[in-house]
């Protein structure tokens, strides 16, 4: 990456803050509204054809980040670029065109399809709205899309409730493919599926990538799934990215203390190594995104926390060999205590 063509998708310091509904009293007193800092300054570049896995604990902002990318949410600040062009720009027509290239696969195979539309109606609607093909070719296109995701075209006139979870997920994928996207955000796309069905859908996603050259942001809490499908893994903690590393190495050599804990917490089948350990990988719960700790956000739970960690927020710094990590244990961090001027504005 880096030299030559711009990344397919790139965020720069993307933030998404949700204001909490504030009481009338607070408003009258002129208190600033509280915000949930769901995504808090994320810079991530995704190259064409690659799969980036996004992992992290519940509530750390994975879904919010994904929804910002597909423009379901209007980011609070920062920039979002697609093939080098800003998606937050003012040229409505261009934004509309770019938007089509970015699609999403949803988590819940039960609520992600309109219960009152047959599969044919749902897919045809997409083709017609975007004039993907001449009217006469719509039925053939629908059949083609269904076959693409491994479903028989004979099933097109059924309603979503007549399909199993795995089949519905395939329909959701077909719907996203209908607009011929280049980039797909898959938010927990296989989490609701059984192991044997999950493997089928993962294979389908791999196949589509091989055939169509798709790029994925694959959001999942199941690290085994991410390890399997991703080329690179981004680890998120409380609205920020703390580590980015190749999937091939991150599970064996996690750098950030949080990544290390996450990897250690994965239940493995490997009974030989540490059968039934009696200590947990990490203690405590993640803090609330409404009260983000100062300095390194992980410091209240980090076994290596140092004085500097409480004051200076680490930045995502590249490390030799490719990974990037936001932790004072590694080189490339802003100067530590003493240089007081550094940590302006790291607090609330």
């Amino acid at each position: 990456m880096g030299n030559g063509a711009p990344p397919l998708v790139e965020t720069r310091d993307l933030t998404m803050h949700f204001p909490l509904p504030s009481g009338l009293v607070d408003r009258l007193r002129g208190r600033p509204a509280e915000v949930v800092r769901a995504v808090d300054g994320v810079s991530l570049a995704i190259a064409a054809g690659e799969t980036v896995g996004l992992v992290g604990e519940s509530g750390c902002g994975k879904t919010t980040f994904g929804r910002c990318l597909v423009r379901l949410y209007e980011p609070t600040s920062g920039d979002l670029r697609f093939r080098g062009e800003s998606l937050l720009g003012h040229d409505a027509a261009a934004v509309r065109r770019l938007r089509r290239s970015v699609q999403m696969i949803f988590q819940d195979p039960y609520s992600s399809l309109n219960p009152r539309k047959t599969v044919r109606a749902a897919l045809s609607e997409v083709l017609r709205v975007h004039r993907i093909c001449p009217e006469a070719e719509v039925p053939a296109r629908v059949a083609g899309l269904l076959e693409r995701v491994g479903l028989s075209a004979a099933l097109a006139d059924r309603y979503p409730r007549q399909f199993s979870g795995g089949q519905r997920q395939r329909i959701g994928i077909a719907r996203a493919l209908a607009v011929e996207p280049a980039f797909i955000v898959a938010d927990e796309a296989v989490s609701a599926l059984d192991v044997s069905i999950q493997a089928q859908v993962l294979n389908l996603l791999a196949q589509l990538q091989d055939d169509l050259g798709l790029t994925y942001l694959f959001i999942a809490h199941n690290l085994g799934v991410v390890r399997h499908i991703a080329d690179r893994v981004a680890v998120m903690y409380l609205g920020t990215i703390v580590e980015v590393q190749a999937a091939a190495t991150v599970f064996d050599q996690p750098l950030h203390p949080y990544t290390q804990a996450l990897v250690r917490a994965i239940p493995t089948l490997d009974r030989g190594r540490a059968a039934r350990p009696t200590t947990a990988a990490i203690e405590g719960d993640p803090p609330s995104p409404m009260a983000v700790p100062a300095g390194c956000r992980f410091h209240p739970r980090c076994p290596y926390a140092m004085p500097v960690c409480r004051e200076v927020a680490p930045v995502l710094a590249p490390q030799p060999g490719g990974p990037a990590v936001a932790c004072h244990l590694y080189p490339g961090q802003p100067a530590a205590a003493g240089a007081v001027s550094v940590n302006i504005g790291t607090g609330a």
Partner: peptide, 23 residues
């Protein structure tokens, strides 16, 4: 079959070997 369909276990093969069909 269940073990073979587990992602992230059988090395990093591009394709998993899922059990065909559904329960």
């Amino acid at each position: 079959g269940l073990l073979a369909s587990l992602p992230g276990i059988a090395g990093r093969a591009r394709y998993l070997r899922p059990i065909p069909g559904a329960p």
